[in-house]
Amino acid sequence: MNPHRRSPFVVVMTVLVFLFLYVPIFVLVLYSFNASRTNVTFEGFITAFGPLQMQGSLVVQSPCGPFHWFCDLTRNQEVMTAARNTLTIAFVSTLISTLIGTMAAIALQRHEFKIKPFAQLSLYIPIVIPEIVMGIGILTLFSQVFTWVNTTFNLPPDLRLTLGMGTVIVSHIAFSVPFVTLVVQARLQGFDPSYEEAAMDLGANELVTFWRVTLPMLLPGVLSGALLAFTLSLDDFVITFFTTGPGATTLPIYVYGLLRRIITPQVNALSTVWILIVLAAVFLIQRLENRERA
């Protein structure tokens, strides 16, 4: 018997796992091209280009053809605002958490200090505790601190600290930092100290060595940490739900709001675009890691 022969069980399981993972996504993408605006059943693609024509709940003809719901999406001011908020939050929180995470990783790898074991362990806590616990925790912290500051300094209404973009960004930084730190730390673990010694031997002081040698060599790790932080921030619903305020609606929050009313193919179109963005990010991470191994 050929020991390498695949057992049918393994084949069936593999196929089932892939179906389970990807059929929902496929259906979701398919429905973003649905001709029916109720989006309960798939009524076929919108095939005709031209001025918008409806027949009951069916779209017969659209200026964008099959991409009707995608065009529709761009005209939706609320979606556009939510998208802008989401990206702003993701960019700012990624930037800051990458900075903090990288510095933390270097400190943890290079230096010995008293609270090091505790600091290392504390990195895992935000990763393992349920998001809802962290969300409530952060919300409690913000509301306590804000109430205290607002009453103590007797701030006028327009200067009062409130929940909004700022609080969402801070909370996203809080949950991203451990991920960035761990990814950069993994990269540092295999880092041969002779590279830095060589740079110093050739006349570079500590600062120049860091900028010219250490950082460029860590860059793939830093970038994949940053991309991880970015996708985590784009995705986040639970923590954002607790820490958001007026004017800081993000896409996940907006979609959740829509779903409570009606599911239109617009939601599917939005999700499709989103999947594409996240896929691109994942693809980029893969590319970075592969380039390193080559």
């Binding site: 060589a198 740079a199 031997d201 050739l202 002081n205 060599m217 860059l219």
Partner: peptide, 20 residues
């Protein structure tokens, strides 16, 4: 004195060439 102020240079066992 740190290495960058000494008039010597080193060839490392691992070469330590800057990969980037």
């Amino acid at each position: 004195k740190p290495p960058f102020q000494r008039k010597v240079n080193t060839v490392f066992q691992s070469y330590a060439l800057f990969q980037h």
